[in-house]
Computed example of a mutant assay.
Amino acid sequence: MERIKLAIEKAKASRADLVSPGGRSPHTPGDTGMPVDQETTARDGDTPDDLGSVQYAQTAVVPMDPAHLERHRVVAHQKAHPASWAFDVLRTQVLQKMDESGWRTLAVTSPSVESGKTVVAINLAISIAQQTNRTALLVDFDLRRPSVARSLGLNRPKSLNDFLDGHASLAEALVNPGIERFVVLPTNRPVNSASELLSSAKVGKLIKDLRERYSDRIVIFDLPPVLAADDVMSVLPRIDCVLMVVGSGVSTQTEVEEAMNRLSKANMLGVILNKDESPTQNAYY
């Protein structure tokens, strides 16, 4: 624990100062909204390499199961939950720093596996979508071990896999999980040659299209751990900024420092200490 804190202090000294509390407490999600969300899709016959001509189509809405969300620690949509405020604070810090630089795309990663980066990415995206002047799009770019769909309980036949293979339009791959202004681009199956795909022109055009389609949109990319492979370094130059999630008791100081070194050329917003079991509470409430 102390080693992780020391590493985070070093990261804070050399990067933007942004730390959010995290925890393992049980969650009790509530009711979801009923959105009517519009997204763009490639015209019939277009491939992922040709996104210049588009038409509008309504994104499929798949309401989430509260019990499933509870098991997977998704809480940001439930304002009565004692942990949701932490993601709202994180949201405000993130948006302020992104707005200062005109950034609209954010990567979420971690030094190593089991740090909770996907849980943070999902809750942060939901919290951003709750602001009426924002929309949030969450993209599962952890192509080797995709987990966003599983965490949200989404079971859709089409996903990012099919879009990149040219077997589905973007609209067919997108899904609204029952929350207003929140859209997910899931990945259903692991991808071979993930690093090569993430650095391809096809993915580069996709990122640009997702970023520029709507001026009020924040696009969050759930990336694999930095130290797992070179996937993060392959795609990060195309994303505006990055947030690193460090799991307390999961990553060592050496792993955190190595991850920071690999991200040295990126716009680092900050580091989140996740899974901290020390007592925390919002005393105001």
Rank of each mutant, 00 (worst) to 15 (best):
V219S: 04
A13E: 01
N161I: 05
V89E: 02
N274F: 00
P157H: 02
M98W: 01
A168K: 00
A229N: 13
P48L: 07
V184Q: 07
S101R: 13
E114M: 15
P82D: 07
M34P: 15
E196T: 08
P190F: 02
A125F: 01
K10I: 11
F182T: 01
S195W: 06
A194E: 04
S112D: 12
L185H: 00
I218A: 11
M244V: 02
M268I: 10
H68I: 08
D276M: 09
D162C: 15
P157E: 13
V74T: 10
S127M: 04
I239H: 08
A60V: 11
L206W: 04
I179C: 08
V175Y: 05
N267T: 07
E277R: 15
R189C: 14
P279I: 03
H27P: 10
I128V: 12
A136P: 06
V219C: 14
I179V: 06
S200M: 04
K12I: 06
V183C: 05
Q131N: 07
R144F: 05
H27K: 12
T59N: 13
M244G: 03
L51F: 12
S278N: 14
L223A: 13
L124N: 06
F182M: 03
E114A: 13
L198C: 13
R145C: 09
V191I: 13
V235E: 11
S264F: 15
N155K: 14
T135R: 08
Y56A: 14
Q93Y: 04
R211Q: 10
L243C: 03
N133L: 05
N282H: 15
D276I: 02
L124M: 12
V94L: 06
